[in-house]
């Protein structure tokens, strides 16, 4: 780790201001950022901890029926407090890492980081969520822009994520044996106006929607509907843990299982 200053503001305004300085970076739960710092892979001058800002924490149901989760809310809190409203999302949060990771890691940190194997991006994209920042609202479809890349500007803070609550949803995560992140993860959500299928862990472009499956499932919400579909291996990740072919295959298997689990 290189030396840095740490500040811990209690309001969003102060945080935004602090992040306006050179070489300042937001610190959420630190579950991604701290290991990066320890390996000396980043050298921010100032870390602005968001953990003191109560206004961006918590889970509640919005007037329009959407589930609203503060950007600084931990995975553990989501697992607990979203369970009654959006069980598929709560179960996803409960499947992230281990208890220590869930006690500190936040939804805002996960979405800001947009790791290609992370779980929340699949839920956000699969739910057609809205990512709310200190400056604007961004539709999930516009937000994810490839591995570790998002629509966020420098210093922009995710304050809230709004999830339309589906009629049925499930996340199927096939764990990479070492990291236990998603080797492939598929989030399926059925809404009155159609089905959304979001895939994480598989593509070199990061989280993506499998539109053929969405179309097929929108007319017939059953694993059978996927029978004649396949995902091309082109552009899938190949690494120590799986070839592009394997990942493409898993996308289909897990989509089927997610549908079965949701229905």
């Amino acid at each position: 780790m290189y030396n840095f200053d740490l500040i811990r503001p209690s309001t969003l305004e102060e945080a935004v201001k602090a992040l306006g300085q050179d070489e300042a970076q937001a610190l959420g739960g630190g579950q991604t950022l701290i290991p990066t710092l320890k390996q000396r892979l980043a050298m921010p001058e100032t870390l602005v901890s968001l953990s003191g800002i109560d206004a961006i924490k918590g889970v509640c149901v919005h007037d329009d029926g959407r589930l609203s989760i503060g950007g600084g809310t931990t995975h553990a809190t989501v697992a607990r407090e979203a369970a009654a409203h959006y069980p598929g999302l709560a179960a996803l949060a409960a499947s992230i890492g281990d208890p220590a990771v869930r006690a500190r890691g936040t939804i805002g940190g996960s979405l800001a980081n947009n790791d290609p194997s992370a779980c929340y991006p699949a839920a956000a994209l699969g739910s057609g969520a809205t990512i709310v920042t200190n400056a604007r609202e961004i539709a999930a479809d516009d937000y994810f822009q490839g591995m570790f890349t998002t629509a966020l500007d420098d210093g922009e803070i995710i304050t809230e994520v709004r999830f339309p609550v589906p009629e049925a949803a499930a996340y199927q995560k096939f764990e990479q044996p070492a990291s236990r992140f998603a080797l492939v993860g598929v989030f399926v959500a059925r809404y009155a106006d159609g089905v959304r299928v979001a895939v994480t862990g598989a593509s070199e472009e990061g989280v993506f929607r499998w539109s053929e499956a969405e179309a097929a499932l929108s007319s017939n919400f059953a694993a059978d509907a996927l029978k004649d579909l396949s995902v091309p291996a082109d552009g899938m990740i190949g690494d120590l843990h799986g070839t592009p072919d394997y990942r493409a295959h898993l996308v289909k298997v897990l989509t089927g299982r997610a549908v079965a689990a949701a229905s």
């Binding site: 044996p177 070492a178 990291s179 992140f181 120590l240 843990h241």
Partner: peptide, 9 residues
Amino acid sequence: LSGTYMDYA
């Protein structure tokens, strides 16, 4: 390539 717990199971 398997030099961290992210890749060494």
